[in-house]
């Protein structure tokens, strides 16, 4: 066998090896995409009753379809995941004032339209009950039962003087990197 032929053969082997490597890499990437298929990340920024309600209905739907759902809760959205009652002892004057002015928990939220100084949400809750629509706090509990990951924004909590124990049990605390990481691994991201 001439030296030329040997060189040609080893070249072919190198090319084959490279193709196999490339195929393996692509297969891994496709497998990763299939794993992520349908996972969803949401930002719950709004503390409006109606918007939080919509967010949790969508989250529950995705969970019912067997998807992983992460809800990153920031700013006014935090109102929706507060415990109905907690002590603000040991916090600064401004923090106490902000906490006193904001609703505590899903049953106290205002509506984005037709709030009428708090009468609107009462009316909507009554109408929803009449039509057998589940309440917001039940939607949150159901989502948690289905394994939703609720992450409260650390920075917003600090600004408002909120502590982890003021929020519903099972809520994690995290930052923007956690949200982005979760979003990059999802193929649906919603901002509510």
């Amino acid at each position: 066998m001439s030296g030329e032929q040997t060189a040609e053969k080893s070249m072919a082997a190198v090319t084959d090896g490279k193709i196999a490597e490339k195929v393996k890499e692509l297969e891994d990437r496709i497998a990763q995409l299939e794993v992520n298929k349908g996972n969803m990340t949401m930002v719950l920024f709004s503390g409006d009753f109606d918007k939080a309600f919509a967010a949790f209905i969508i989250a529950n739907g995705a969970l019912a379809m067997g998807k992983e759902v992460t809800m990153f809760v920031t700013f006014w959205g935090l109102d929706a995941i507060k415990k109905p009652a907690f002590s603000t002892a040991g916090r600064g004057f401004l923090e106490k004032m902000v906490l006193a002015m904001r609703p505590k928990g899903p049953n106290k939220l205002a509506t984005s339209k037709m709030n009428f100084g708090g009468i609107g949400p009462k009316l909507f809750r009554f109408m929803m009950k009449q039509k057998n629509v589940e309440q917001l706090h039940t939607m949150i509990e159901m989502a948690q039962e289905f394994g939703v990951r609720i992450v409260a924004c650390q920075m917003s909590m600090d600004v408002m003087g909120l502590k982890k124990e003021d929020l519903l049990d099972g809520v994690e605390v995290g930052g923007v990197a956690l949200f982005l990481n979760s979003s990059y691994q999802s193929n649906t991201t919603l901002f509510v």
């Binding site: 739907g61 969970l63 019912a64 067997g66 039509k131 057998n132 289905f146």
Partner: peptide
Amino acid sequence: KGMNCPMPIMKTAM
């Protein structure tokens, strides 16, 4: 019967 969205789907999934 009597349930509204998204409950029937959630109960089905369960």
